[in-house]
Protein backbone atom coordinates (compact mmCIF):
# COMPACT_ATOMS: atom_id res chain seq x y z
CA UNK A 1 0.00 0.00 0.00
CA UNK A 2 1.55 3.20 -1.10
CA UNK A 3 -1.50 5.43 -0.92
CA UNK A 4 -1.74 7.74 2.01
CA UNK A 5 -4.19 6.18 4.44
CA UNK A 6 -5.74 7.73 7.49
CA UNK A 7 -4.88 6.13 10.80
CA UNK A 8 -7.61 3.62 11.62
CA UNK A 9 -10.13 4.68 14.25
CA UNK A 10 -10.05 2.95 17.61
CA UNK A 11 -13.19 0.97 16.85
CA UNK A 12 -11.58 -0.38 13.68
CA UNK A 13 -8.48 -1.39 15.60
CA UNK A 14 -10.65 -3.16 18.17
CA UNK A 15 -12.79 -5.00 15.60
CA UNK A 16 -9.90 -6.08 13.40
CA UNK A 17 -7.91 -7.21 16.44
CA UNK A 18 -10.81 -9.30 17.65
CA UNK A 19 -11.39 -10.77 14.18
CA UNK A 20 -7.71 -11.65 13.95
CA UNK A 21 -7.80 -13.47 17.29
CA UNK A 22 -10.98 -15.31 16.34
CA UNK A 23 -9.45 -16.39 13.02
CA UNK A 24 -6.35 -17.67 14.74
CA UNK A 25 -8.39 -19.62 17.28
CA UNK A 26 -10.40 -21.17 14.45
CA UNK A 27 -7.34 -22.07 12.39
CA UNK A 28 -5.50 -23.68 15.28
CA UNK A 29 -8.47 -25.73 16.46
CA UNK A 30 -9.43 -26.90 12.98
CA UNK A 31 -5.79 -27.65 12.16
CA UNK A 32 -5.32 -29.72 15.33
CA UNK A 33 -8.62 -31.55 14.76
CA UNK A 34 -7.60 -32.43 11.19
CA UNK A 35 -4.21 -33.66 12.40
CA UNK A 36 -5.92 -35.88 15.00
CA UNK A 37 -8.25 -37.34 12.37
CA UNK A 38 -5.36 -37.94 9.98
CA UNK A 39 -3.26 -39.78 12.57
CA UNK A 40 -6.32 -41.70 13.75
CA UNK A 41 -6.98 -42.85 10.20
CA UNK A 42 -3.36 -43.75 9.51
CA UNK A 43 -3.14 -45.79 12.70
CA UNK A 44 -6.00 -47.92 11.33
CA UNK A 45 -4.24 -48.48 8.01
CA UNK A 46 -0.61 -48.86 9.07
CA UNK A 47 1.09 -51.37 11.31
CA UNK A 48 2.74 -54.77 10.88
CA UNK A 49 0.30 -55.31 8.03
CA UNK A 50 -0.90 -52.55 5.69
CA UNK A 51 -4.58 -52.32 4.88
CA UNK A 52 -5.77 -49.92 2.19
CA UNK A 53 -8.34 -47.28 3.04
CA UNK A 54 -11.04 -49.22 1.23
CA UNK A 55 -10.57 -52.20 3.58
CA UNK A 56 -10.66 -49.96 6.65
CA UNK A 57 -13.88 -48.31 5.46
CA UNK A 58 -15.41 -51.72 4.77
CA UNK A 59 -14.55 -52.90 8.30
CA UNK A 60 -15.94 -49.73 9.91
CA UNK A 61 -19.14 -50.17 7.93
CA UNK A 62 -19.46 -53.66 9.35
CA UNK A 63 -18.28 -55.61 6.31
CA UNK A 64 -16.28 -58.81 6.57
CA UNK A 65 -12.78 -58.41 5.14
CA UNK A 66 -10.35 -61.31 5.36
CA UNK A 67 -7.72 -60.47 8.03
CA UNK A 68 -8.65 -56.82 8.29
CA UNK A 69 -11.83 -57.58 10.24
CA UNK A 70 -9.75 -58.90 13.11
CA UNK A 71 -6.69 -56.67 12.89
CA UNK A 72 -8.53 -53.43 12.19
CA UNK A 73 -11.92 -54.15 13.76
CA UNK A 74 -10.83 -55.89 16.95
CA UNK A 75 -7.30 -54.62 17.53
CA UNK A 76 -6.61 -51.27 15.85
CA UNK A 77 -9.98 -49.54 15.99
CA UNK A 78 -10.69 -49.93 19.73
CA UNK A 79 -7.09 -49.05 20.41
CA UNK A 80 -7.24 -45.87 18.32
CA UNK A 81 -10.61 -44.84 19.77
CA UNK A 82 -9.31 -45.36 23.30
CA UNK A 83 -6.09 -43.50 22.55
CA UNK A 84 -7.96 -40.56 21.05
CA UNK A 85 -10.42 -40.23 23.91
CA UNK A 86 -7.84 -40.79 26.63
CA UNK A 87 -5.58 -38.13 25.14
CA UNK A 88 -8.48 -35.73 24.71
CA UNK A 89 -9.61 -36.22 28.31
CA UNK A 90 -6.08 -35.86 29.72
CA UNK A 91 -5.45 -32.76 27.61
CA UNK A 92 -8.69 -31.10 28.73
CA UNK A 93 -8.20 -31.96 32.39
CA UNK A 94 -4.54 -30.93 32.45
CA UNK A 95 -5.08 -27.55 30.81
CA UNK A 96 -8.10 -26.85 33.03
CA UNK A 97 -6.00 -27.30 36.16
CA UNK A 98 -3.02 -25.43 34.74
CA UNK A 99 -5.17 -22.48 33.66
CA UNK A 100 -7.20 -22.40 36.84
CA UNK A 101 -4.14 -22.47 39.10
CA UNK A 102 -2.11 -20.30 36.70
CA UNK A 103 0.79 -22.71 36.83
CA UNK A 104 1.94 -25.36 34.34
CA UNK A 105 3.07 -27.56 37.23
CA UNK A 106 -0.49 -27.80 38.53
CA UNK A 107 -1.43 -30.62 36.18
CA UNK A 108 -3.41 -33.48 37.80
CA UNK A 109 -0.67 -35.98 36.99
CA UNK A 110 1.88 -33.86 38.86
CA UNK A 111 -0.24 -33.01 41.89
CA UNK A 112 -1.15 -36.55 42.81
CA UNK A 113 -4.61 -37.05 41.37
CA UNK A 114 -3.43 -39.74 38.94
CA UNK A 115 -1.41 -41.30 41.75
CA UNK A 116 -4.62 -41.59 43.72
CA UNK A 117 -6.18 -43.55 40.88
CA UNK A 118 -3.07 -45.73 40.46
CA UNK A 119 -2.77 -46.55 44.15
CA UNK A 120 -6.41 -47.56 44.36
CA UNK A 121 -6.12 -49.68 41.22
CA UNK A 122 -3.02 -51.49 42.40
CA UNK A 123 -4.65 -52.24 45.75
CA UNK A 124 -7.80 -53.38 43.94
CA UNK A 125 -5.88 -55.76 41.68
CA UNK A 126 -3.25 -57.13 44.01
CA UNK A 127 -4.81 -57.01 47.45
CA UNK A 128 -8.55 -57.24 46.87
CA UNK A 129 -8.49 -59.27 43.62
CA UNK A 130 -11.28 -57.21 42.10
CA UNK A 131 -12.68 -57.47 38.58
CA UNK A 132 -11.44 -54.96 35.97
CA UNK A 133 -14.74 -53.02 36.13
CA UNK A 134 -14.58 -52.76 39.91
CA UNK A 135 -10.97 -51.65 39.65
CA UNK A 136 -11.95 -48.86 37.24
CA UNK A 137 -14.72 -47.70 39.54
CA UNK A 138 -12.41 -47.73 42.52
CA UNK A 139 -9.72 -45.80 40.65
CA UNK A 140 -12.23 -43.12 39.64
CA UNK A 141 -13.52 -42.77 43.18
CA UNK A 142 -9.98 -42.61 44.54
CA UNK A 143 -9.01 -39.82 42.10
CA UNK A 144 -11.99 -37.75 43.21
CA UNK A 145 -11.23 -38.38 46.89
CA UNK A 146 -7.57 -37.44 46.37
CA UNK A 147 -8.53 -34.22 44.59
CA UNK A 148 -10.99 -33.38 47.33
CA UNK A 149 -8.38 -34.06 50.02
CA UNK A 150 -5.81 -31.82 48.29
CA UNK A 151 -8.44 -29.12 47.93
CA UNK A 152 -9.41 -29.27 51.61
CA UNK A 153 -5.82 -29.35 52.83
CA UNK A 154 -4.96 -26.28 50.77
CA UNK A 155 -8.14 -24.39 51.66
CA UNK A 156 -7.59 -21.25 53.62
CA UNK A 157 -9.97 -18.51 54.65
CA UNK A 158 -10.99 -16.71 51.50
CA UNK A 159 -10.16 -19.47 49.04
CA UNK A 160 -7.46 -21.82 47.89
CA UNK A 161 -3.85 -20.69 47.70
CA UNK A 162 -2.38 -21.96 44.45
CA UNK A 163 1.24 -22.60 45.41
CA UNK A 164 0.05 -24.32 48.55
CA UNK A 165 -2.22 -26.59 46.52
CA UNK A 166 0.61 -27.58 44.17
CA UNK A 167 3.06 -28.33 46.99
CA UNK A 168 0.49 -30.34 48.95
CA UNK A 169 -0.38 -32.18 45.72
CA UNK A 170 3.24 -33.07 45.02
CA UNK A 171 3.56 -34.31 48.61
CA UNK A 172 0.47 -36.46 48.28
CA UNK A 173 1.72 -37.82 44.94
CA UNK A 174 4.95 -38.95 46.62
CA UNK A 175 3.00 -40.53 49.46
CA UNK A 176 0.71 -42.43 47.10
CA UNK A 177 3.52 -43.70 44.91
CA UNK A 178 5.19 -45.17 47.98
CA UNK A 179 1.89 -46.96 48.66
CA UNK A 180 2.06 -48.34 45.12
CA UNK A 181 5.67 -49.51 45.55
CA UNK A 182 4.83 -51.14 48.87
CA UNK A 183 1.92 -53.10 47.40
CA UNK A 184 3.95 -54.10 44.34
CA UNK A 185 6.89 -55.33 46.40
CA UNK A 186 4.70 -58.02 47.94
CA UNK A 187 2.93 -59.00 44.74
CA UNK A 188 3.03 -62.33 42.95
CA UNK A 189 4.78 -62.20 39.58
CA UNK A 190 1.69 -63.05 37.50
CA UNK A 191 -0.30 -60.15 38.98
CA UNK A 192 2.48 -57.72 38.20
CA UNK A 193 1.65 -57.71 34.48
CA UNK A 194 -1.85 -56.42 35.15
CA UNK A 195 -0.73 -53.99 37.83
CA UNK A 196 1.99 -52.53 35.63
CA UNK A 197 -0.66 -51.23 33.26
CA UNK A 198 -1.75 -48.92 36.06
CA UNK A 199 1.69 -47.50 36.46
CA UNK A 200 2.89 -46.60 32.98
CA UNK A 201 -0.31 -46.41 31.00
CA UNK A 202 -0.87 -48.74 28.11
CA UNK A 203 -3.28 -49.11 25.23
CA UNK A 204 -2.57 -52.84 24.80
CA UNK A 205 -5.68 -54.91 24.97
CA UNK A 206 -7.98 -51.93 24.61
CA UNK A 207 -11.55 -53.11 24.13
CA UNK A 208 -14.84 -51.33 23.61
CA UNK A 209 -16.16 -52.59 26.95
CA UNK A 210 -13.29 -51.09 28.86
CA UNK A 211 -13.55 -47.81 26.96
CA UNK A 212 -17.33 -47.40 27.12
CA UNK A 213 -17.37 -45.58 30.50
CA UNK A 214 -14.81 -43.10 29.12
CA UNK A 215 -16.92 -42.52 25.99
CA UNK A 216 -19.91 -41.67 28.16
CA UNK A 217 -17.79 -39.47 30.44
CA UNK A 218 -16.36 -37.48 27.52
CA UNK A 219 -19.75 -37.04 25.85
CA UNK A 220 -21.31 -35.78 29.08
CA UNK A 221 -18.48 -33.86 30.70
CA UNK A 222 -16.58 -32.22 27.85
CA UNK A 223 -19.56 -29.94 26.95
CA UNK A 224 -19.88 -28.90 30.61
CA UNK A 225 -16.21 -28.06 30.69
CA UNK A 226 -16.39 -26.05 27.46
CA UNK A 227 -19.38 -24.20 28.87
CA UNK A 228 -17.32 -23.22 31.94
CA UNK A 229 -14.40 -21.93 29.87
CA UNK A 230 -15.75 -18.39 29.63
CA UNK A 231 -15.72 -18.04 33.41
CA UNK A 232 -12.34 -19.77 33.59
CA UNK A 233 -10.95 -17.16 31.20
CA UNK A 234 -12.14 -14.41 33.56
CA UNK A 235 -10.55 -16.24 36.50
CA UNK A 236 -7.16 -15.97 34.81
CA UNK A 237 -7.23 -12.27 35.75
CA UNK A 238 -7.18 -13.23 39.43
CA UNK A 239 -9.99 -14.34 41.72
CA UNK A 240 -10.90 -10.85 42.85
CA UNK A 241 -11.04 -9.43 39.35
CA UNK A 242 -13.13 -12.38 38.21
CA UNK A 243 -15.52 -11.97 41.13
CA UNK A 244 -15.79 -8.25 40.35
CA UNK A 245 -16.67 -9.22 36.77
CA UNK A 246 -19.60 -11.26 38.08
CA UNK A 247 -18.07 -14.76 38.12
CA UNK A 248 -19.14 -16.97 41.05
CA UNK A 249 -15.49 -17.91 41.60
CA UNK A 250 -15.65 -20.56 44.31
CA UNK A 251 -18.60 -22.38 42.71
CA UNK A 252 -16.98 -22.33 39.26
CA UNK A 253 -13.73 -23.64 40.71
CA UNK A 254 -15.40 -26.59 42.44
CA UNK A 255 -17.30 -27.44 39.24
CA UNK A 256 -14.13 -27.23 37.16
CA UNK A 257 -12.26 -29.49 39.59
CA UNK A 258 -15.03 -32.10 39.66
CA UNK A 259 -15.39 -32.19 35.88
CA UNK A 260 -11.65 -32.24 35.16
CA UNK A 261 -10.91 -34.88 37.80
CA UNK A 262 -13.74 -37.08 36.54
CA UNK A 263 -12.39 -36.86 32.97
CA UNK A 264 -8.91 -37.64 34.26
CA UNK A 265 -10.14 -40.58 36.33
CA UNK A 266 -12.22 -42.19 33.59
CA UNK A 267 -9.32 -41.84 31.16
CA UNK A 268 -6.96 -43.37 33.73
CA UNK A 269 -9.36 -46.26 34.26
CA UNK A 270 -9.40 -46.93 30.51
CA UNK A 271 -5.65 -46.84 29.83
CA UNK A 272 -3.75 -46.21 33.03
CA UNK A 273 -2.02 -42.94 33.85
CA UNK A 274 -0.25 -42.29 30.52
CA UNK A 275 2.65 -40.31 31.84
CA UNK A 276 2.70 -36.53 31.40
CA UNK A 277 0.02 -36.25 28.68
CA UNK A 278 -2.08 -33.98 30.90
CA UNK A 279 1.03 -32.07 31.91
CA UNK A 280 2.52 -31.61 28.42
CA UNK A 281 -0.58 -30.81 26.38
CA UNK A 282 -1.62 -27.54 28.02
CA UNK A 283 1.63 -25.55 27.71
CA UNK A 284 2.32 -26.84 24.19
CA UNK A 285 -1.23 -26.10 23.03
CA UNK A 286 -1.00 -22.64 24.60
CA UNK A 287 2.25 -22.07 22.70
CA UNK A 288 0.66 -23.15 19.39
CA UNK A 289 -2.50 -21.12 20.00
CA UNK A 290 -0.80 -17.96 21.21
CA UNK A 291 -2.43 -15.52 23.61
CA UNK A 292 -5.78 -15.37 21.84
CA UNK A 293 -8.07 -17.25 24.19
CA UNK A 294 -8.54 -20.34 26.30
CA UNK A 295 -6.00 -23.11 25.56
CA UNK A 296 -8.18 -25.86 27.08
CA UNK A 297 -9.88 -27.23 23.95
CA UNK A 298 -6.66 -26.98 21.93
CA UNK A 299 -4.95 -28.87 24.74
CA UNK A 300 -7.54 -31.66 24.50
CA UNK A 301 -6.93 -31.95 20.76
CA UNK A 302 -3.18 -31.88 21.24
CA UNK A 303 -3.45 -34.56 23.95
CA UNK A 304 -5.33 -36.82 21.53
CA UNK A 305 -2.68 -36.21 18.88
CA UNK A 306 0.14 -36.87 21.34
CA UNK A 307 -1.27 -40.19 22.56
CA UNK A 308 -2.03 -41.45 19.04
CA UNK A 309 1.41 -40.54 17.70
CA UNK A 310 3.27 -41.79 20.79
CA UNK A 311 1.38 -45.07 20.77
CA UNK A 312 2.14 -45.64 17.09
CA UNK A 313 5.77 -44.90 17.79
CA UNK A 314 5.83 -47.17 20.85
CA UNK A 315 4.34 -50.06 18.88
CA UNK A 316 6.30 -50.01 15.67
CA UNK A 317 9.28 -47.71 15.68
CA UNK A 318 11.49 -49.27 18.30
CA UNK A 319 11.58 -52.98 17.52
CA UNK A 320 9.89 -54.03 20.75
CA UNK A 321 6.36 -52.96 21.65
CA UNK A 322 6.54 -50.51 24.50
CA UNK A 323 3.63 -49.20 26.52
CA UNK A 324 2.71 -45.72 25.25
CA UNK A 325 3.46 -44.24 28.67
CA UNK A 326 7.16 -44.99 28.19
CA UNK A 327 7.30 -42.66 25.19
CA UNK A 328 5.24 -39.85 26.74
CA UNK A 329 7.23 -40.20 29.93
CA UNK A 330 10.48 -39.83 28.01
CA UNK A 331 9.12 -36.67 26.39
CA UNK A 332 7.57 -35.26 29.56
CA UNK A 333 10.43 -35.52 32.01
CA UNK A 334 12.81 -33.17 30.14
CA UNK A 335 9.91 -30.76 29.66
CA UNK A 336 9.28 -30.73 33.41
CA UNK A 337 12.94 -29.91 33.99
CA UNK A 338 12.75 -27.18 31.33
CA UNK A 339 9.74 -25.59 33.03
CA UNK A 340 11.43 -25.67 36.42
CA UNK A 341 14.58 -24.09 35.03
CA UNK A 342 12.60 -21.43 33.20
CA UNK A 343 10.47 -20.50 36.23
CA UNK A 344 13.66 -20.37 38.26
CA UNK A 345 15.36 -18.04 35.75
CA UNK A 346 12.41 -15.69 35.52
CA UNK A 347 12.55 -15.49 39.30
CA UNK A 348 8.96 -16.65 39.61
CA UNK A 349 7.82 -18.64 42.60
CA UNK A 350 6.92 -22.08 41.32
Amino acid sequence: MTTLTEAPSTIEVVTTGRARRARRRWLVHVGLALAVLAVFWLSLMLGRTYYPASDVIAVILGGDVDGASFTVGTLRLPRAVTGLLVGFAFGLAGATFQTMLRNPLASPDVIGISSGASAAAVIGILVLNLSPTAVSAMATAAALVTAFAIYLLSYKQGGVANTRLILIGIGIAAMLSSVVSYVLSGAAAWDMQVAMRWLTGNLNGATYERTLPLVIAVVLLAPVLLWLLRDLEAMRLGDQTAAALGVPVERTRVLLIVVAVALMAFATAAAGPIAFVAFLSGPIAARILGPVGSPVLASGLFGALLVLVADFFAQYALGTRFPVGVITGALGAPFLVYLLVRSNRSGGSL
Binding site: G17, A234, T241, A244, L245, G246, P291, V292
Partner: peptide, 29 residues
Protein backbone atom coordinates in the same frame (compact mmCIF):
# COMPACT_ATOMS: atom_id res chain seq x y z
CA UNK B 1 -21.06 -6.43 38.12
CA UNK B 2 -23.03 -4.24 35.72
CA UNK B 3 -23.46 -1.54 38.34
CA UNK B 4 -20.22 -1.61 40.26
CA UNK B 5 -16.70 -2.18 38.98
CA UNK B 6 -13.67 -3.00 41.09
CA UNK B 7 -9.99 -2.79 40.29
CA UNK B 8 -8.19 -4.92 42.88
CA UNK B 9 -4.69 -4.20 44.09
CA UNK B 10 -2.90 -6.80 42.01
CA UNK B 11 -4.87 -8.04 39.04
CA UNK B 12 -3.11 -10.61 36.84
CA UNK B 13 -2.63 -10.25 33.09
CA UNK B 14 -2.42 -13.63 31.33
CA UNK B 15 0.92 -14.09 29.57
CA UNK B 16 1.09 -12.38 26.19
CA UNK B 17 -2.48 -11.05 26.22
CA UNK B 18 -3.03 -7.99 24.03
CA UNK B 19 -4.33 -4.71 25.41
CA UNK B 20 -7.60 -4.76 23.49
CA UNK B 21 -8.20 -8.39 24.47
CA UNK B 22 -7.64 -7.58 28.15
CA UNK B 23 -9.87 -4.51 28.03
CA UNK B 24 -12.49 -6.68 26.31
CA UNK B 25 -12.56 -8.93 29.39
CA UNK B 26 -14.36 -6.07 31.12
CA UNK B 27 -17.40 -6.91 28.98
CA UNK B 28 -17.85 -10.23 30.79
CA UNK B 29 -20.91 -9.26 32.88
Amino acid sequence: ARTLGLLPQSPIAPEGISVSDLVGRGRHP
